[in-house]
């Protein structure tokens, strides 16, 4: 389980961003998590509670937005949802794709700050 490592990375990153923006109170950290990122949402949420202790974002809540897997379908010539989180096939026509355009996100995209 590498969720604790990931959680520690999030805390560090959020702390740096807060310091850079001069925000002393971070209420929440918003995360975009791809369903194919290989990180378990529930495990990450509990790891975050440990990781934030004593940090610059100790009072923050981790808000996780999951991102579904999307592929570029070579047959439909557009971006389509994948048939499942593990199989990069077009949900519409079933064609296999080698271009995954979403679903691997592991990104802190916003801080909710009080000022």
């Amino acid at each position: 389980m590498h969720e604790l490592s990931i959680a520690l990375n999030i805390v560090e990153l959020a702390g740096e961003e807060a310091a850079r923006g001069g925000y002393t109170r971070v209420q929440a950290v918003h995360l975009r998590l791809g369903r194919a990122a290989g990180v378990v949402k529930e495990a990450l949420a509990s790891a975050y509670e440990l990781a934030r202790e004593g940090s610059a974002v100790a009072e923050s809540e981790l808000k996780i937005e999951e991102v579904a897997v999307q592929i570029f379908c070579p047959r439909c010539k557009v971006e389509r949802p994948a048939v499942s989180d593990v199989e990069p096939q077009c949900a519409d026509c079933g064609t296999s794709s080698t271009q995954v355009v979403a679903g691997r996100e592991l990104e802190v995209y916003a801080l909710e700050v009080l000022e």
């Binding site: 990931i6 990375n9 999030i10 990153l13 959020a14 961003e17 923006g21 925000y23 109170r25 209420q27 918003h30 995360l31 592991l106 990104e107 802190v108 995209y109 916003a110 801080l111 909710e112 700050v113 009080l114 000022e115």
Partner: peptide
């Protein structure tokens, strides 16, 4: 004090 959303958009594993 009102909460405000500040976009940061940083890859978590960017250091690695």
């Amino acid at each position: 004090m009102t909460p405000r959303l500040v976009e940061v958009r940083q890859q978590i594993l960017k250091k690695n």
